[in-house]
Simulated scan of single mutants.
Amino acid sequence: MKTTIIKWLPAVLLCALQPALAAETAPGLALPDLGYQGNVTPLPPQDGAAAPKQWDRALPFFAQRVVDRGIDLPNPYNVGLSYYYSEQNMLLSNLKVSVNDNPLRSAGFVGFPKSTLENRSEQVQLGAWLLPFMNVYGIVGHIKGGGDIGLSIKADDAVQFITGLDRCSGRRKPDWCGKTLETSARANYNGYSYGLGVTLVGNLDRLFFSLPVTYTVSNISMSDTDAKSLNVAPRVGVNWQLGDYGTMLTYVGATYLHTTVTITGSATLPTSETDIGQDTKVNFSIDEKIANPWNGLAGVHWAVNRNISLLAELGFGARQGYILTAFYRF
């Protein structure tokens, strides 16, 4: 992944971290929120902490130049544990269906009422400060979720698709002609995800900014192919010195999450009251993506000391959810 690094500001930098994952995934007619959520925020120096005269770590590169300016850098390595929950609407397209063991074929006449997906993820993140203003990280985690996917189809089209006969074009039409059949398919899935990311951070006095960019791949039970996600999450906030209680950052921002995946499954269509005489099992293949890729966020990151920090973040708008993360830095 190519990332454009902003011009380094000597007085910026300080710690960032993240949780996870979109990812964060994806689906049984429903596409999970695959991917790491890019929750990374800078960690400012502790109140009263004296910057060491000599930086004795291999990373970050150019650390001594920053230390010489009196800036206290965070410990360069970190391990994070995260729990993530989200709820969002999905867009479904390019539906292909078949009856029983017949091959799939296009079925553009099927409609999809509002479909909502819930996603849960537990993730582990390993990160390091490569440069004073740039943190790189890798993530791996377990994902699971589900949701109800609405399906609607005219009885005329359903009978013609299944039997090949147009029973509603003649003068004498069955009672079910013109009616709309509705059902829902429950999408349950589980799997794992992994990815890489980079975060740029900076500050100006008590103000700070953070720009994490994360790419993840998810393997889930209801898709024949991996789901891939791109997450960009700019943040801006203020740091507060708490004396003996460390430092707290409060921030707001937005998250852009782009995820697409082709999923497969089956649903039962209620055709028993038509000429078919019984309900029909329909197999399907469908492309899914997030209906609204942008959502707002607000969070707090408490740096208890140089080794431990805690993060809580709330997502709102088109995609709602929360994330809780604990970090150990060394």
Rank of each mutant, 00 (worst) to 15 (best):
M1P: 12
I6Y: 08
W8V: 15
W8L: 13
L13G: 12
Q18Y: 09
L21V: 14
E24P: 11
L34C: 14
Q37S: 10
Q46L: 15
D47I: 09
Q54P: 00
L59V: 14
R65Q: 14
D68N: 07
N75M: 15
N94L: 05
N94R: 07
V97H: 00
N102C: 03
F112E: 06
V136E: 09
K144M: 12
G147F: 09
A158F: 08
Q160H: 03
L165R: 00
L165D: 04
D166A: 02
R167M: 00
S169Q: 10
P174L: 11
A185E: 15
N188I: 15
N190F: 11
G195Y: 14
V198T: 13
L207W: 11
P212A: 02
V213G: 08
T214P: 12
T214F: 11
T214G: 13
S223F: 02
T225R: 11
L230W: 11
V232R: 04
A233Q: 12
P234T: 09
V236G: 06
L242Y: 06
M248G: 03
T250N: 04
T250F: 08
V252A: 04
T255L: 08
T274C: 01
I290R: 03
N292L: 06
W302P: 03
V304T: 09
V304C: 01
R306K: 12
S309R: 08
L310W: 04
L314Q: 13
G315F: 15
I323R: 09
I323C: 05
